[in-house]
């Protein structure tokens, strides 16, 4: 029989089949991850895991996000999941290699992340077992642990609340205001007595050493005196000018009472300045409330410990905890 046209059906069918098969091959390669074909002769390693829930055969094995192998087999051995890994032959593992089951995204597929280990450790031969493994933290597992975590966090939270309440009592309430006022009154009283001393000092310097036995106080007073002297000198100059210029003001300036008051105020300022200079620490100490100070310290320590504990969980735990706390 003769063909009806030069392009017989055979040729057309042949071309079509070829094109279709090429397209199929192309798409298969795209989706098939056939890149693993070359590793069929790769190295095998074993890794025991407490749980491989969600891990599938042919799942990926990655180092630093690069696929280096496949999960060849998952078996149960001594109540542990034994995972057989098929890895690229040129990948070198060390004795301290780590294997972690991780999840792509929050709900994505599970894969194994490898840390090949440090150069210092001895190499791990093919067929060896990676001992340092960590199973994935399951989302539902995290949720299951939330209540106990909350129980741990409860005392911390109440400590923190106690601290803030104490602080509030000190600063915020009327009572606190009263104690602050009292504190300031004390300051005033102290400075009053100081100004008395200063007055005495003005009358005779020689007797000062005898009157004040403590060196430290002496030095303090001395410092104060120097400043006072200059201040008084200034005032003197001022009052002299007043006395010379205007009679009534001069009289006023010579009034002892006014002079005393000015002196008092200056002393008072000085005292506060000194205190701040010495920098006597926290508010707790300023108000002499040792117990509050201790409590705060303890609470901060607790929080630190709790934070340490939380850090060991994955961030997802914190997320869950916060979520649960917010919802509470």
């Amino acid at each position: 029989m003769k063909a009806k046209s030069t392009w017989g059906p055979e040729v057309k069918v042949g071309i079509f089949v070829l094109v279709a098969l090429l397209l199929l091959a192309y798409m298969s390669l795209k989706v098939g991850r056939f890149a693993t074909i070359g590793w069929r002769a790769g190295k095998t390693y074993y890794a025991p895991f407490a749980s491989v829930s969600g891990l599938v055969l042919n799942g990926q094995v990655e180092v630093a996000g690069v696929e280096v192998g496949r999960i060849k087999d998952i078996t149960l051995k001594d109540h542990q999941a034994q995972v057989e890994l098929l890895l690229q032959p040129d990948l070198e593992l060390r004795q301290d290699a780590q294997a972690t089951i991780r999840t792509k995204g929050m709900l994505g597929e599970k894969f194994i992340e490898l840390h090949p280990g440090t150069a210092a450790a001895a190499p791990l031969e093919a067929g060896g077992t990676i001992t340092d493994t960590q199973s994935a933290v399951e989302f539902d597992e995290v949720l299951r642990r939330v209540p106990s975590v909350l129980k741990d966090i409860q005392p911390i939270l109440s400590d923190v609340r106690a601290i803030s309440q104490s602080l509030q009592r000190v600063i915020g309430t009327a009572e606190g205001e009263a104690s602050l006022k009292e504190m300031l009154d004390n300051f005033q009283a102290a400075s009053k007595s100081l100004s008395q001393i200063a007055k005495d000092l003005e009358q005779g310097r020689g007797t000062l050493g005898k009157l004040l036995k403590e060196d430290q106080l002496y030095r303090q007073v001395q410092g104060t005196m120097t400043e006072l002297e200059s201040a008084i000198a200034n005032l003197n100059r001022f009052s002299t000018r007043l006395a010379q210029g205007q009679g009534t003001l001069g009289k006023l300036a010579n009034d002892d009472r006014l002079y005393d008051q000015a002196q008092q105020a200056i002393n008072r300022l000085n005292r506060v300045a000194q205190k701040i200079d010495h920098g006597e620490g926290t508010l707790g100490k300023l108000v002499n409330d040792q117990s509050l100070y201790d409590e705060t310290q303890k609470a901060v320590k607790n929080v630190n410990q709790a934070m340490e504990g939380i850090k060991e969980q994955t961030p997802i735990t914190v997320l869950g905890t916060i979520g649960a706390t917010v919802l509470r």
Partner: peptide
């Protein structure tokens, strides 16, 4: 074979 190819062409190529 030729007859078969005719059908392959009819169903396959001409439906392309």
């Amino acid at each position: 074979i030729r007859h078969f190819f005719g059908q392959l062409e009819f169903i396959g190529v001409r439906s392309l």
